[in-house]
Design a protein around this nucleic acid. Sequence first.
DNA 1: CGCCTAACGTTCGGATGGCTAACGTTTATG
DNA 2: CATAAACGTTAGCCATCCGAACGTTAGGCG
Lengths: 159, 159
Amino acid sequence: MENPSEDTPARWQGLPSWLLSQTANHAHRLVGDGFSAVGARGYHYRLLATLEQSGPASQAALGRRSGIHLSDMVATINELADSGLVERAPDPSDRRRNIISLTSAGKRQLRRLEKRLAETQEELLAPLSPEERQHLTKLLSRLLDHHNRRTGTPEEPWR
Amino acid sequence: MENPSEDTPARWQGLPSWLLSQTANHAHRLVGDGFSAVGARGYHYRLLATLEQSGPASQAALGRRSGIHLSDMVATINELADSGLVERAPDPSDRRRNIISLTSAGKRQLRRLEKRLAETQEELLAPLSPEERQHLTKLLSRLLDHHNRRTGTPEEPWR
DNA sequence: CGCCTAACGTTCGGATGGCTAACGTTTATG
DNA sequence: CATAAACGTTAGCCATCCGAACGTTAGGCG
């Protein structure tokens, strides 16, 4: 009795929101696998990359720049600090703050993660030609921009 | 001290995997908001839609068709059954199975969810022209197909 | 016929990413 | 000085996706 319709494609499967979610699932899985092969996950990469780019900063500032929620920052920094990839030091000029900085081990880990990430992009976009990849990127960027503007912008909202 | 680089875009933000994930997040949020306005969530819609399309079936069969994990099916059906949108009856010909069927209230709910979903697509794709929407859909479909083939195909794996 | 495997439903729990609420400490501002 | 704001922290929720385990029931095969 489970055979009468095993070939019906289900109508929602053509919806952009569905395609987007599912494709993102695959991407998420690929990225996650790549990261976990090096003992990390998305937040770790985002934080390390933000740190390298912004330099040492307070947790709150890092949260703003990386788009990681403050309450998740705590755990993320704990994990990275436990592995010696990051250092947490009190800010002498403001005792509310911790100053987080990248260690050299952290930099090395970041290099590894970037490598994985690059490989993942290849795997993710395998079936598309270079032009198609570019086109997809452009379309997605426009969508993202639009919605980021509608919702509180994640980057540079203050200026 | 948090100003020196508030304008650096962060390099990962151009990666397709990132664009995909973030855009999907927005989509997910939009869809979820639409659904929750009618007291439902994604799994509910997927199950109801699958039910209408396949007709009554066992939980395992529905799980296969809808792509919902068996262990999540239980809770989903419980919730839908509690709201009277779905009925769970033992299969007289196989005592291992429950036969799940859509009630008329369930059909009505499905109509509502479909309406929301359609509105959401509009909202999601607002900044794109019809041709661009089509192009995006096509590119995503190709990606999804590719990866679904690589991973265990979600639909019709047995045939 | 009996056994063993496989399918089914169920419960429990984990991972990831995103988010809210509360609270104490510290700084800045009116 | 007093009040407001920022900071870090803890605790918790939600949705989707997933794996492990277990008892029950059917089916296939010797």
